[in-house]
């Protein structure tokens, strides 16, 4: 009995250590996570390749920016003022990748685009967290998400796209942003 007890004790200790480790990791990452409205809703529980299937629901803090004409219009203004246009142009890309197409390197869901803008990316995307406020980053994310919407593409003539961005429908992100909806062809 005593030996069994001892084993249970060690297991319990190990479990406690694991939990403590998790807490520590959570604390660490929280220090660098977006604050305020941008804070992630929950963490991924399973490891998947970046851009692969994620069993998470989108960040609820993105909700106010769906269906909002104000978000995409303000986002466009900030996008131009902050020289995003200098790298990505009006969605076709140049120094940075295109934004008006169907390929998302770091995920095309509104909250994923938010993260890309907030944290930056190693191949040259600057981190805008702390330089733009949370609402501004969400608005730029909404404008970027809008660029590839069929509604936006249809609203704009050839040559200079993305000048009349359509609001981002909630449905646009239902397939994790970059997947084709089931039953549609490309």
């Amino acid at each position: 009995m005593s030996s069994l007890f001892r084993i249970e004790g060690i297991a319990a200790l190990a479990l406690a250590l694991v939990v403590a480790g998790c807490d520590k990791a959570a604390d660490e990452s929280d220090r660098f996570a977006p604050s305020g409205p941008g804070a992630p809703a929950q963490r991924a529980v399973a490891l998947v390749p970046a851009g692969g299937e994620l069993d998470t629901t989108p960040n609820p803090r993105a909700e106010p920016y769906y269906g909002s004409a104000e978000a995409v219009t303000n986002g466009m203004l900030i996008y131009n003022q902050m020289n995003c246009v200098g790298c990505h142009f009006n969605g076709g890309g140049g120094i940075g990748p295109p934004l008006m197409d169907d390929q998302w390197i770091y995920g095309g869901r509104l909250d994923q685009i938010y993260n890309t803008i907030y944290f930056g990316r190693p191949n040259g995307m600057p981190a805008w967290g702390g330089k733009l406020n949370d609402e501004q980053i969400w608005q730029v994310a909404a404008y970027v998400r809008s660029m590839s919407l069929p509604e936006t593409l249809a609203r704009n003539g050839t040559g200079t796209p993305s000048q009349h961005p359509a609001p981002v429908p909630r449905a646009a992100d239902e397939n994790d942003g970059w997947h084709m909806p089931k039953g549609t062809g490309g």
Binding site: G92, G94, P98, M100, G159
Partner: peptide, 21 residues
């Protein structure tokens, strides 16, 4: 040739400082 090596989206004529057009 950035439209190919990028690759960039040819629907935006302003991309790559207007060369894509």
């Amino acid at each position: 040739g950035a439209v190919v090596s990028g690759p960039l989206d040819p629907r935006d004529g302003t991309s790559a400082l207007g060369f894509v057009n």
